[in-house]
Write a protein that binds this DNA or RNA. Structure first.
Length: 270
DNA sequence: CGTTAGTGTAGGTTTTCATA
DNA sequence: TATGAAAACCTACACTAACG
């Protein structure tokens, strides 16, 4: 049984995550909830959770400070960051603290389940913490200066349609072949997969703004060509950009603020 | 008419593998 | 650790069609 601590200042978010864990994940038990870092520290002392799921931005001690403090205290736990819109760069920084994964709000139910399931599997196999897909792959990458820097490079340039592995490799003065190999080895994702994932996640944020046209979203996140954007979006999410937007609107009108989101799935979000 | 989706294709880019 | 070559994959482009 995995012990989980939920840390978020938004009650509705915690309630949604609790509902999901209690209904979908019988191997997990929520031992405590906290609304900020201070409360979380106390809960950790009492319950020694296996997994800490924390928001980044909270009053008082924020998520990053909390993780730093818990690591200082030697807590052997897996950390999952929950990041809201506009926190992406912040979440990237969080990866350097060795978090296992991070989830963007609105949280996708399937992805949430898959992240926790993956953590349980790793713990049960007594493996060292391995990052999951996507951004979390950056954790190992932090150990190599070029890859560490390249992640920041991508974060700065992902909106540029001309961003390429060749350019990035040239930036560091190594061959594209070697750079690509190194990147995949250390992050778990190929260069293009990483960049595409970042673009799609950003696009999903933009699609929540109804006044922005879908093709403009594609342009805004680095897709020069709408057809390519639509194809790529569907490949990663099993729905078109417009379908995704429609779902978000529907879910937000029926369930409130903690709604929407999807990650390589077309199932309902929390 | 504007927006979005779908398809085929050529060319460029990335990944993989063998090798030093 | 690093490179080169070739295969595999991806992207941009052009075009068509559906929909409101």
């Amino acid at each position: 049984m995995m012990k989980v601590l939920l840390v978020d200042d938004e009650r509705v978010v915690k309630r949604s995550m609790r509902a999901l864990i209690e209904t979908e994940m019988t191997d997990f038990r929520i031992v405590a909830e906290a609304k900020d870092g201070q409360e979380a520290l106390q809960a950790v002392e009492l319950y020694r959770p296996d997994i800490v799921i924390t928001d980044i931005r909270m009053p008082g001690m924020d998520g990053l400070a909390l993780i730093r403090e818990l690591k200082t205290r030697g807590l052997q736990a897996e950390f999952v960051i929950v990041s809201g819109y506009g926190d992406f760069g912040y979440a990237q920084t969080a990866l350097r603290y060795g978090v296992t994964d991070y989830l963007l709000k609105p949280i996708d139910a399937d992805y949430f389940v898959s992240v926790l399931t993956g953590i349980k599997k790793r713990i049960s196999q007594s493996d060292p913490v391995q990052p999951t897909v996507g951004e979390a792959g950056a954790a190992d990458g932090q150990e190599h200066p070029i890859i560490r820097d390249s992640l920041a490079y991508i974060a700065r340039h992902y909106t540029d349609p001309t961003l390429s592995l060749k350019d990035a490799a040239g930036h560091y003065g190594i061959s594209p072949n070697y750079f690509g190999t190194l990147f995949k080895k250390l992050t778990g994702l190929s260069f293009t997969q990483y960049v595409t994932h970042m673009r799609i996640e950003k696009a999903k944020r933009h699609l929540q703004k109804p006044f922005v046209k879908v093709y403009e979203v594609g342009l805004a996140v680095g897709f020069d060509d709408y057809a390519h954007f639509a194809k790529t979006f569907r490949k990663w999410n099993d729905c078109s950009p417009s379908e995704y937007r429609q779902r978000i609107i529907t879910q937000q009108s029926s369930t409130g603020s903690f709604a929407g989101g999807s990650e390589r799935t077309n199932t309902d979000a929390i």
